[in-house]
Amino acid sequence: MSHHVLLIEDEPNIMEAIRFFLSRDGWKVSCHSDGATAVSEVNRITPDVVVLDVMLPNRSGFDVLKELRAAPDTRDLPVLMLTAKGQTKDRERAEQLGSSGFMTKPFSNAEVLEKLRSMVGHA
């Protein structure tokens, strides 16, 4: 069965690239670009894994993660954080908030894929 991934990313080109190589790998991909509605989108779609950008319009990815971790339904949902700022403190923040993975842009497509696979227990 195919895993369902939700991409929360405001940069259209980046979203397109991720969507492309995940779909090609057989993932079911949903896309969302707004921070404010991200949590309800997660609850609505109930994906197996979430790719979450930090710099989102209207609401930061950290806040989204925090809310996800606070709710029982999404407490254990695998979340991969992506950030373009690339600073250590962002990584620490993400780990502290309970992200399942953290990757800095620009990333290697293969690494993202590998990470997501391991996060959903896919060999």
């Binding site: 940069e11 080109n13 980046i14 690239a17 991720i18 190589f21 373009a84 700022k85 690339g86 800095t104 842009k105 620009p106 990333f107 290697s108 497509n109 293969a110």
Partner: peptide, 12 residues
């Protein structure tokens, strides 16, 4: 990093 991300991703 944002444009570079796109460039790298699509290059790959």
């Amino acid at each position: 990093r944002t444009p570079m991300t796109s460039i790298r991703a699509f290059s790959e």
